[in-house]
Design a protein around this nucleic acid. Structure first.
Lengths: 140, 140
DNA sequence: CGAGGAAATGCAACTAAGTTGCATATTTCT
DNA sequence: AGAAATATGCAACTTAGTTGCATTTCCTCG
């Protein structure tokens, strides 16, 4: 595959002050190559032969989320979907579009959604998240 | 409490072409009185003495969602939160605000969020959902 | 380079939200 | 009132995610 993915993952881990372990590098590489948010079991499946314990994947994802490298993008059918935090500003991530026909979710990275005001009736708004639903190009 | 709640619940069920059963009326009354989305176990707790089986609550909520009377507002910590669909237009519900300090979620019913365009790069957009995060009035 | 302590991993057992099959009870229609 | 349609309750199950603990790996410092 791409020879620099490994280096990229290592750099991300060191800047986040996390140990550079094989499992973490492998998981980050999956996330770097994924074009949409992924679940724990999808990561495990991508790793195939060099399998990881699901506990390791969950704990790694938790560390990556805590350090801000990864976002818990959304939940669907009781499962969390994760994605790298690049393509996200501090106040909002790109919208996620779920097709009501085929169920797949797409990242609408180029889509600009106006940010809510930072204050409203005593609420201080830090972050906004938009989910869209409808028909994807394939189903429409 | 309010004497007309019972009648209101009954009317909602008949217009939705659902059997008017005691469990359904009781659940609808809880939803009518709730000021924020509720979980299955919160509904059960509200009913107190005249308790219902959790399966009944889940199945009732499923019917109410299918007929459009209720929305699955969001998920938090692997649990679904439900609310009545009034206050919602066909293309978008009111935004939900979750406090990152105390964890409670509020409905921002008065809050207008511009609707996304109905088409974007082949995607046909039917519905939009906005979640906000920050500090609630009590925590700010 | 090679300890040694800090942190990460793996396993098994557990938790909790939600679902399914099936027998029984309730509602609606006529 | 009686029959058919639908809803309820129970117990057992499913599944995503978590916890405790023993073992392994990583990084730092001499």
């Amino acid at each position: 595959m791409k020879p620099n993915l490994d280096e990229k993952a290592r750099r991300m881990l060191t800047t986040a002050a996390l140990y550079c372990t094989e499992p973490r590098i492998a998981i980050l590489k999956v996330l770097l190559e994924a074009r949409r948010p992924v679940r724990q079991d999808q990561i495990a499946e991508c790793l195939g032969d060099r399998a990881l314990n699901k506990v390791t994947i969950y704990r790694t994802l938790a560390s990556l989320v805590k350090t801000g490298l990864v976002h818990r993008a959304f939940m669907q059918k009781r499962a969390s979907y994760f994605e790298l935090a690049h393509n996200c500003t501090e106040t909002q991530c790109h919208p996620h579009f779920t097709c009501s026909n085929c169920g797949t979710t797409h990242c609408l990275t180029g889509f600009a959604v106006p940010m809510a005001p930072s204050r409203y009736r005593g609420f201080v708004i830090h972050h906004q998240q938009v989910r869209l639903e409808g028909l994807c190009p394939a189903c429409a």
